[in-house]
Amino acid sequence: MAVPATAFAANSPSDAGDGRSTTAVAPAAVGLDDPAKKEIAMKIVSSAENSSLDWKAQYKYIEDIGDGRGYTAGIIGFCSGTGDMLDLVELYTQRKPGNVLAKYLPALRNVDGSDSHAGLDPNFTKDWKKAAEDSAFKTAQNDERDRVYFNPAVSRGKSDGVGVLGQFIYYDAIVMHGDGGDPTSFSSIRKRALAKAKPPAQGGNEKTYLNAFLDARVWAMKQEEAHEDTSRVDTAQRVFVQKNNLNLNTPLDWKVYGDSFHID
């Protein structure tokens, strides 16, 4: 069972033997927001999203993968059809007016909710790659990833009492499914899991709960043709659960879409 990611104090006798008590503070439990664990998370997601562990090479990535979400781009798969790409470009433009992507804001607002490229072609992909050379755009991608996906996943995972692996499982689910109100969103997946098992924060067994969540995640993925390959769960996250690696400790070995990956 995971412990809350907070330090606690305990009274213990002083080593000096003078009868006084001293306060010993236990180290805080490591969460996915620990820099080393976060780096692992970025690599595992990149293995699924980009078939590469080099997630920092993905700032410039952009293509239409035919999933009905328009262009997918950047380190976390911001999509022109789901609003998060629009939010990203708006943030970038607030910080750096007149940037190379600012002129596409009207088009991004118009195509939100569709797979349309109207107003984006033919130069949007070229300009995206140019913007990705700008450190301000990279920082904006990092910040939007954390605000929309990473921080909510870690926060919810900690409140449910799951450890680093569980927080990553939440993160990967939010990345793919978002957290809207539809039946395949993260919150709906979590609700299906809670109907089957209690999380550690409610006295449940962590492995049992994580398996229930992954079962619900697989169901959600199979509702959409573009996500029907569930190997990022079956031969990656599920493997870590089976190995009791609830802290996502290295070395790690997994497969995604038939490709093998390793982190020392």
Rank of each mutant, 00 (worst) to 15 (best):
G98N: 13
L91Q: 09
V239S: 12
H177I: 01
V3G: 07
D34V: 05
G68L: 09
W128V: 11
K191P: 11
L246D: 00
A73R: 07
M176C: 02
P27G: 01
W128T: 03
N205S: 12
L248H: 01
D127N: 13
V30F: 02
D127H: 09
K96L: 11
V164G: 05
L91P: 03
D15H: 09
S231G: 08
D179T: 06
S47W: 04
V100S: 09
P35Q: 01
K207M: 14
P35V: 00
A57T: 03
F168H: 12
G258S: 08
D264N: 12
P251Y: 05
T125K: 10
T6E: 13
G163S: 07
N205F: 09
L165F: 06
T72Y: 04
E133G: 10
D67A: 08
D87H: 09
R95K: 14
A48K: 05
I40H: 00
F150M: 01
S260V: 14
K243D: 08
G113V: 06
H177P: 04
S21Y: 15
E144M: 13
D54S: 10
A5N: 02
A212D: 05
G17H: 05
D229V: 03
D127L: 04
F8M: 14
A195R: 13
G166Q: 01
R145V: 04
Y171E: 04
V45L: 06
N142F: 00
V148C: 02
N205E: 14
A153M: 01
T22V: 15
G74V: 07
D264E: 07
M221R: 14
T22I: 15
Y71Q: 06
D253G: 07
L88T: 03
S52T: 15
S260Y: 11
S21W: 14
Q167I: 01
G203S: 06
A10P: 04
E228T: 15
E49M: 06
A212G: 11
D64N: 14
T82A: 14
I76S: 11
D84P: 00
W219S: 08
I65P: 03
D229P: 05
G119I: 15
G66C: 11
V100G: 13
K196A: 15
K43G: 05
G74R: 02
Y61V: 01
K37E: 09
G161T: 06
V89T: 05
F78A: 03
R69T: 09
T23I: 15
Y209H: 06
